[in-house]
Amino acid sequence: MAPARARPAALSLSARRALWAYTFLALPMAFYVAVRLAPAASALVISLHQWNILSPEKPWVGLANFRELRADPLFWKAAGNTLRYAAAGIPAQIGGGLGIALLLQRVRRLRDLLRALYFVPFVTPIVAASWVWQWMYSPQFGPLTRIFDALGLPAPAFLRTPGQALYAITAMVVWEFLGFQVVIFLAGLEAIPRVYYEAAAVDGAGGMGLFRHITVPLLNPTLVFSVVYGTIVYLQLFTQVLNMTFGDPGGPLGSTETVVLYVYQQGFQRFRMGQAAAATVVLFGAILAITLVQLRSLSRPVEY
């Protein structure tokens, strides 16, 4: 390092540091704007046109695509299914993740190994996992059917039954994200200072009381993150659904159809980009609104 040459400083040290930081931030920001925000904004423009990807003429149609969306029963089915995925998957994933994290926190031996094992599904390629799960669910050859047989219960058809297919896929998604949740919760739990528990214990608080009055409030930022992140994952569900019902994407009678799969089918199989963009805009609005509501209602400042 050459010694700094003395010269009149135009900017204070902290201002210069900030300037450097902003300079470095500008590059990824420009990239982000170019590849993410600009295309996202163009979806809004496309949604107001009759935009057949092949056609040179792309007439302005105002809100016609949105009206058509409103009249399409498959879109409503996809929207309802997407909410069902979220309503079933998020509580299962967070409840399961928190439960396992609390148990793991109590054990010393094998904790790292167990944590790694829970995490494996999260780093498994989704497409490969989806195909393995299809075989697991096979009513003829799947191990799950054998379990039902052994218990003397009638084996369900899983992916071939409109009432079950959605939850069968949800179970696979929960399996995939459980390890991630465990790791997040373990980190959150480790961050809670032990002294609170000790102080409360001295005051005579029991297990459930400690959990309700110390763990849950102090874990609030982690919980909020998990709920918001999970919501976004489930509202954007696509790969698992497409691959688990590959011959008839969207499952028997559209029972596993999601909004993103609907967007894909409209845009890239039927080339109706305007319709696809309209569904995307609706989905964006829904995710934004739900996320804001969740952040408002779930975040609580905790003072101890």
Binding site: W131, Q134, W135, S138, P139, Q140, L159, R160, F246, G247
Partner: peptide
């Protein structure tokens, strides 16, 4: 016959 006897598009 069983629909989706083998999973996949060419099952």
């Amino acid at each position: 016959a069983v629909i989706d006897f083998f999973p996949g598009g060419n099952g």
